[in-house]
Design a protein around this nucleic acid. Sequence first.
RNA 1: CGCGGGAUAGAGCAGUCUGGUAGCUCGUCGGGCUCAUAACCCGAAGGCCAAUGGUUCAAAUCCAUUUCCCGCUACCA
Length: 535
Amino acid sequence: MTNNPAPQKFVVTTPLYYVNDVPHIGSAYTTLAADALIRWQRLQGNSALLITGTDEHGQKIERTAISKDLAPQEHCDQIVVSFKSLWEQLNIQYDRFSRTTASEHKVIVDQFFERVWEKGDIYLDQQQGWYCVACEEFKEERELTEDKHCQIHTNKKAEWRDEENYFFRLSKYQKQLEAIYADNPEFIQPVARRNEVLNFVAQGLQDFSISRVNLDWGFPISQDPKHTIYVWFDALLGYLTALLEPDQEANLELALSQGWPIDLHLIGKDILRFHAVYWPAMLLSAELPIPKRVFGHGFLTKDGLKMGKSLGNTLNPFELLDKYGSDAVRYYFLRAIEFGKDGDFNESRFVDLLNADLAKNLGNLLNRTLGMLNKYCQGNGPQLKQEDYPDHDSLKTIGSNLGSQVAIAYQDLQFKQACEAILELANASNKYIDDHAPWVLFKEGKQEEIEHVLYAVLESIRLAAYLLSPIVPNLSNAIYQQLGFSCNFNELTQLSAAPVFAQHSRWGHLPANLNLNKARPVFTQLELSSVVSDS
RNA sequence: CGCGGGAUAGAGCAGUCUGGUAGCUCGUCGGGCUCAUAACCCGAAGGCCAAUGGUUCAAAUCCAUUUCCCGCUACCA
């Protein structure tokens, strides 16, 4: 369906976040995971595009703006600033920030709507049904209790609604969707999420309303301007708009040629249904290919409790970043939590984990090794090569397998496993030093052996830093710089060549005659002082 | 019969799909080392893997039943 084959590009999206309020930790979580993936792609020399943005229409936004005595657009503009600022503090390298109020987006939405309209999949009908205001959703009879209460909101009775809406023929696509799920088992991940969707679809799909009346803040439907397009229909299309280059003409075909279908929609589990059911159906209707993968990750809790304003235990991402820095925050959420499952934030665990892994295991390892080089080798880099190590050498063994192991983990979004595997090399290196005791070798005057040991360790540190760079780019920079490299993991152009990846991801790459820099702690231990408070 | 997630050492978790000596991090206790960010290495204590029943030569893992916990009432990923 796409024309003009553009260079192959790995495209990942975060949700377009709803601008009802300033960003919260959950948005940060999704986004930092997406960023790590994109960085991993770029590290390998692949062309990659990270799409994020904001979803700005809908009644809720309109009401929020009014309550702040602002025009809706002014309100959105303010919130957008805070999102962009958070992404900057989190060291997110996004390529597109797609706003659903952008003028290009209007064109894309019109053109897409037109396709679906021409297909005959949109029809006008009376929306009749039980509406749960708390859910903002129409409910099936079977979803309600006998006295018409929503099962989630048992304290609120569903309301009978009867209004004119446009509908999308979702029901028409049930069979096709089921075939897609069956033929593409990788489409919805993780498996538990996939099962939920399968279950939902198997119960039968109902057409859903895609327009609202009596709502100004949204795109009017060209065919019938008193209707406004339902916010979700509009928001999902934001992914398409985002494919356009910043100064490119707004045109659906053009957008599609720039990287469609998208490789991965990274989302929270709450919006899975929209991405795994409604969105593919909309695309089928428009005769477009569907995205390759939708991954619904888990939710975060704080100290075991759901975060919420009512509980007053929200975790302010800005404060967290101010206090600990982007690397620490990125590392914690990717390392401490099984991606896909719910995970907990606990500040003392946060400090423990960061100190144990980054400050002590890896950071101190570099520090002690460089210290010994200065003391025992006058700071000269060892002059050895991979071939000088027997195959049973523990670091060589672990290091040689690490690159491919970590590649698989990143590919499967198993960030935790990637971190664990990498840290194992650091751990083995600390042991390696103790086992070989360079300080003893020094007293015995065994200079060559000292260099032999230190090279292996230094190389292991380098490899660990390289493979961790998608997650903790600043730390990796600091390590690489102390090792005498001049590259910068935040400036990907210098590292984007595939041959570089082939070399750097292999154990044994460290060249001789390194221009080693002075040993300085690359990651200072964190202290648990006052607990990050509610905003 | 609402939907979903969970119950494994003091704490937090992996392992469950593809049955076969129960593992990781932090913490605790003891020892070692001295190159280092009070770091690093070694060792130990600590688990009837929620319960019951079943399948099997063998079950944390498969099947059945049960108990308990947590979300789903919006800031929401």
